[in-house]
Design a protein around this nucleic acid. Sequence first.
RNA 1: UGGGGAAUCGUUCAAUGGUAGGACAGCGGACUCUGACUCCGUCAAUCAAGGUUCGAAUCCUUGUUCCCCAGCCA
Length: 561
Amino acid sequence: MPEAENHAPNDFIRDIIDEDLKTNKHDGRVATRFPPEPNGYIHIGHAKSVCLNFGLARQYGGTCNLRLDDTDPAGESMEYVESIIRDVHWLGFDWGKGLYYASGYFERLYQFAVELIKKSDAYVCSLTPEEIREYRGSFTEPGRESPYRNRSVEENLDLFARMRAGEFADGSQVLRAKIDMAAPNVVMRDPVIYRIKRETHYRTGDEWVIYPMYDFAHCLSDALERITHSICTLEFENNRPLYDWIVERLIPAERPKQIEFARLNVSYTVLSKRRLIELVQNNHVHGWDDPRMPTVSGMRRRGYTPEAVRNFCAAIGVAKNDNLVDAALLEHCVRDDLNERAPRAMCVLRPLKVVIDNYPESQMEDFDCANHPQKPHMGTRKIPFSKVLYIERDDFMEDPPKKYNRLGPGREVRLRNAYVVKYQSMEKDEKTGEIRQINCTYDPATRNAPPADGRKVQGVIHWISAAHAVPAEVRLYERLFTVEDPGSMENCLEYLNPNSLTVLTTCYVEQSLKNPAPGSQYQFERLGYFCADEKDTKDGRPVFNRVVSLRDSWTKVAARG
RNA sequence: UGGGGAAUCGUUCAAUGGUAGGACAGCGGACUCUGACUCCGUCAAUCAAGGUUCGAAUCCUUGUUCCCCAGCCA
């Protein structure tokens, strides 16, 4: 099954690791980590990183930690931590005992900062935030040194201790690394490494009023965990010199190698945390696990499988090119996996009543239907057939085009798994002109056989016996945005797809689907893959999400005329 | 503008001086009690210009385009 995952070609990161292994770089160890900040739910882009980091550990017999990078209490919460843990597990990965929090290192990080001060490599700066920005210079102008840059070690030690003790107002002091205000890389112009922020931390409460910055905490956390390959996204490339600068001064024996790869973008959706939070908070979607969301929770609720997501991550590869991956590839991976495992069933989305004139009023037959046409071992189930049926409204046309392989006046079609029926008449609502009912006759000889005279029928359509139909709600999903690359647009909310959700409340499913297991997936034949909504499916009243439609070559033909 | 990155079919990832290949998408066909699946076929790319070489996507030179960085976010 994980064929795609195993046969993925080597990428540049694996090349680097192979080389490191060859030179016995870290005694042959491979240790990675997945380091999300718990300030949102993880999404398909994170899944790429999860598959990469945990996949590397798996492939090289190494380890991969899950580390919550929680150095900024604003916006972080336990709810997010729990969602991340659940989602990474669901994706199929486990970190064993390797669950860590940057906040778990706060005391050690503080001591490292003290050490840096003692080496004269850090100082407390009393400039205002605005002044710090001004002093930083610009891309073309070097920065200017802070007037506080040359405070004595003793004074810095005292000031830093008092920062921790809460003697200063938020934003009034910071600890900065003493590097080079004229560095061409602005990251190296005496970066702030600690700030004062009176905000309750979801784990450490009010124990701290100072918090380390990412650049200080992340590299040291990596080194403390003896990470060998610290894999992150391209935007951190500029920070790598600082990463190395800090670790070299504090834990030189354990310097991990930071390697950057291109973050994932997927067409017709957004993947920036800011954008996703916006969608949730402004109620453009119904929460982080809305099936339209590209979050792991959203995909799970939608009915995607972890295998499909992993296969997708293997298929997109890992490189340093900016990319916008076609959402069709994700859908392909989902179909590919669900085609293998989803039992088939019948569902009528928009019912149209059909009466079989020559079928006895009181008669009922059970048909044995294959749960999977290519997989006999998946068994069969009984489906009742009777005089009054529902078919899909789309499967009847009063005046069909030539290539229409369905029912219409004078036409004959196969009812899937049942008889061939022939059109006889229709009833219309006199006022609206809406077709209310179709009358057909059936050919009793066609139960498990083609028409005896060898005549070809127009096609095969699905159906539900009216007397046995189970009412269901079905939710159809389409892409969230109408433009390919909404993430690149400032006003992307204007391009939200108004049809991203269609709720159908008058659907019928076959009896076997009366009480589906929450989250279970099915292929509704000729329609697509659907899953029983894990939250809203109630006893005897199923709710299905359309995971993805079946590949459809008909709408294209129809559109051409 | 200074620094850091990246440029290969429509999209995405390979090819590590020696036949530019795969996947997705597209197109055409076969099969079919799912207009699905499967199968077969097909279209289609080395940013540009020079140079080195028997041979260049790969090495060199020059140029072009795109992305990232001036948070006390990560």
